[in-house]
Amino acid sequence: MTHGPRIVDARLHLLSRQVLDVDGEPVSTVDDLELRGPDGSEARAGQEAHVAAILVGPALVTRLFGGRAPTSRMPRIAWDDVGHLGTAVELAVSSDGLDADWVEHWVRERLVERIPGGRHDPEGDR
C-alpha cells in the first residue's frame, strides 16, 4: 500500500547524506544521483525522469573539481536497493554485496586483516 508521496529536495534531503546498509553499516555518502527516463533510457528535459542510482566515490571528485567521468563507469548503488529515508539513506541490502564498497573491501583484505588483531572484536571479552 502506498500513501501520498513525500516531497524532498535533492540537495537538501539526499545529497551528502550518509548511506547505511541493511545492518546499519555505513557504506558511503550520497555523492550524486543519476537520473534516467522511463525504462532506463537517457533522461530528457521535460520528460518523465526518475532517480535511478546513487553515485559514490568519483562522483564526489567531479562535483568538487568539475570535469566529467563517464557515468556508466562510476560506482553506483541502484535506487531500487534503497529501503528507508530518514536522517540517513538506508539500503535494503548488505554492503558486502555492493561493488560500490570495493575500496573498503580492498583495504580490509589487503591491509587491516593482515595486521594481528585485525579481526578482533573490541566489544568481546577476549
Binding site: 500500500m1 502506498t2 500513501h3 501520498g4 508521496p5 513525500r6 516531497i7 524532498v8 529536495d9 535533492a10 540537495r11 537538501l12 539526499l14 547505511l20 541493511v22 546499519g24 532517480v51 529501503g83 528507508h84 529515508l85 530518514g86 540517513a88 538506508e90 535494503a92
Partner: peptide
C-alpha cells in the same frame, strides 16, 4: 535544487534500519 517526489510505503513496525 532539484525537487523530487518520493513514493512512500506502509510497513510493519519491525522495519530494518540503522
Amino acid at each position: 535544487d532539484v525537487r523530487l517526489a518520493l513514493e512512500t510505503r506502509d510497513e510493519p513496525d519491525d522495519g530494518p534500519g540503522g
